[in-house]
Amino acid sequence: MSVLSVEGLCVRYAGQQNPAVDDLSFSVEAGQTLALVGESGSGKSTTGFAILGLLPAQAQVRARQLAFAGQNLLGLSENALCAVRGGGIGMVFQDALSALNPLMTVGEQIAEAVRLHHPVSRAEARARALALLKRVRIAEAQRRLDEYPHRLSGGMRQRVVIAMALAGEPRMLIADEPTTALDVTIQAQILRLLADLQAEAGLALLLITHDLGVVAEMADRVLVMRHGRCLEQRDVLDLFNAPQHPYTRQLLAACPPVGSPV
């Protein structure tokens, strides 16, 4: 059974003519990575937010099926959704600085995520936060626990965001442009970290990106989006070897050949 299975997902913003996401279908298996690819405004981030019900109230979300581990997410109460958010599906954001609360220490924010999904004491949550920081390979994890986000480097902040996403021990991660805001060398480190974590826990990964280099490195399957629609959905090798849609060919042509040094 797929971890996440989406069929006929439509998102429409009130007062807008064209749907932001139009009849999208895909599924993600445990241990597998599906990449949603497209330029900005293609609806790929909207798709990611729609799965967890994170879109503003003006957005109308409909789907024939939107199931996580066999559970229909669309019919869920807000309380049940809260359990899925972070507990079933973790989310990694693009801009780690703005994604972290500036007034709370890194440790507090991770511990909060732990305690939202596990009934543990404060001390235990803090210990788990420390373990999580070590798991995302932050140097001097003990000291970082009591730092505020603005004191950390961009790469470290992104690791904190990933640690927070893992705090509820989810079965799946949605990573929304996780490396776009980072330096090239840091990008590679973060991608490797994500891949390792995925392998360790057998996580399903929905990777949202505009970067075909990232896709080539990480993805098993690729879904190419434009104007909210799916243009093609293939195994990553097939796509790179024989793109079918002219738009995919354009995208590939605009990107350095696979395997060349970035």
């Binding site: 809260c82 703005s98 994604a99 609360n101 909060e112 995520a113 939202l116």
Partner: peptide, 25 residues
């Protein structure tokens, strides 16, 4: 701000988002 969405994505209830994350800021 984005961190409120983060709080939501990690499973905070609405009340928690407001009082723990929005109000202090």
């Amino acid at each position: 701000l984005d961190f409120v969405r983060t709080a939501r994505a990690k499973g905070s209830s609405r009340r928690r988002q407001v009082w723990r994350h929005v109000v202090p800021n």
